[in-house]
Amino acid sequence: MGRWGWTRPAPDVAQAGSMALEPQTRRERGPGAVLVTGGAGYVGSHIVLALRDAGYPVAVLDDLSTGDRNAVPAGVPLVRADAAHGEAIRGMIACYRVTAAVHAAAALDDTPATAAHNARMCARFVRACAESGVRRLVLTSSAAVYGAVPNCPIAEFRCPAPARPYGAGKLASEAEVREAFGAPGFGYVILRCFNVAGADPAGRAGPRAGKALVEAACEAALGLRGPVTVFGTDYPTRDGTCVRDYVHVADVAAAHAAALSALERGLGAATLNCGSGQGHSVREVLAEVAACASAGLAAGAGSRRPGDAPVSIAAIGLAGETLGWRPHNSSLGAIVRSNLDWTRNLHREAAAP
């Protein structure tokens, strides 16, 4: 999500409170809709798919500053507005009889200003939800809240110490959720997601930015961009490059659906890791991409980035105990193959006359 306040709706995007939404409202009703912010973005669009697959009616709020309205499935209402805009939020809650929310919207720029924006946006969104009668909420948080932890796997009881502004913004957002939804009668789940990668196995959604390692490596292997930069080759790891926990985006989306289900069954509050529980180095990721693509992959060495931890791997046992969730698609090979398939299809569509 980007700019504050309303943005002008595209011709096929509705505005909250419009009577034109009523036919869709009737179709989407039932037990009440789940409002997903950032539902046109990478992680958010997969969350929408998982919720729909689980039988939840869904409505999406996204300002489309980085999201793609084509990523929102047909039949899912999409309102173009910022997640901090109370009028839009309250209008959607009333129009779609929203009973639960997933806050996945966040700007990704790693600056203090963006971190503060994300925290303010979360505060306004969760307060508007709570004041409008929404009682269950899932927050898409990040492992960036932990910072550089000396020992892995990282368990949820570790005291957060963000090393970068983005992580500080997510930690502040967590505090806003606890304040707004920590009272009796409310329930929340905070999911601290590790390195999300891959694409929907059915080919319905996937990444478009090409900024994260797996995405960039797949584009490089397919000849769609130049060499990949490896930021730091002298870390105290098995091959000198950073080791990360890569979790398939479909597993992350399934964790959000499982969290909503657990809240419906009476779960009061939980802060949980969402990862694969396995670590892979940058060089291992590049080698896997090259093998799956059957192609060479050029990579150059760059300097370390400030705040990068040598190793970051999730302890995921608590998520299994609390939600009955575990990752099913998060082998490195499955992540890479799904991303390669998605990237090939995007390139074919772009090249088609």
Score class of each variant (00 low, 15 high):
Asp239Cys: 13
Arg225Val: 12
Thr233Ala: 14
Gly240Ala: 05
Leu222Phe: 01
Ala205Tyr: 02
Tyr235Leu: 15
Ala216Met: 01
Leu224Arg: 12
Ala216Lys: 09
Thr229Ser: 10
Gly223Gln: 03
Leu224Ile: 14
Val214Gln: 00
Ala220Asp: 06
Leu224Lys: 07
Ala216Ser: 09
Lys211Thr: 15
Thr229Val: 15
Leu213Cys: 10
Arg204Cys: 08
Ala205His: 02
Phe231Gly: 01
Asp234His: 09
Ala209Arg: 13
Cys218Tyr: 12
Asp234Pro: 04
Thr229Tyr: 03
Glu219Cys: 12
Asp234Leu: 05
Ala221Leu: 07
Ala216Tyr: 00
Ala220His: 01
Thr237Asn: 10
Leu213Arg: 05
Asp234Glu: 14
Arg204Gln: 05
Ala220Asn: 09
Pro207Cys: 07
Ala216His: 04
Thr241Phe: 00
Pro207Ser: 04
Tyr235Pro: 06
Val214Gly: 05
Ala205Gly: 13
Ala220Ile: 10
Pro236Tyr: 06
Thr233Gln: 04
Val230Arg: 12
Thr237Pro: 13
Lys211Leu: 15
Gly210Thr: 04
Gly226Arg: 08
Ala205Asp: 06
Leu224Glu: 12
Thr241Gly: 05
Arg208Gln: 02
Ala220Phe: 06
Gly223Met: 08
Gly240Ile: 02
Ala205Ile: 04
Gly232Arg: 07
Lys211His: 11
Arg208Thr: 05
Arg238Ser: 15
Val214Asn: 01
Ala209Met: 12
Glu219Ser: 09
Val230Ile: 15
Arg204Met: 10
Glu219Phe: 00
Val228Glu: 05
Gly223His: 07
Gly226Ile: 12
Val230Lys: 10
Lys211Tyr: 08
Val228Thr: 13
Gly226Asn: 08
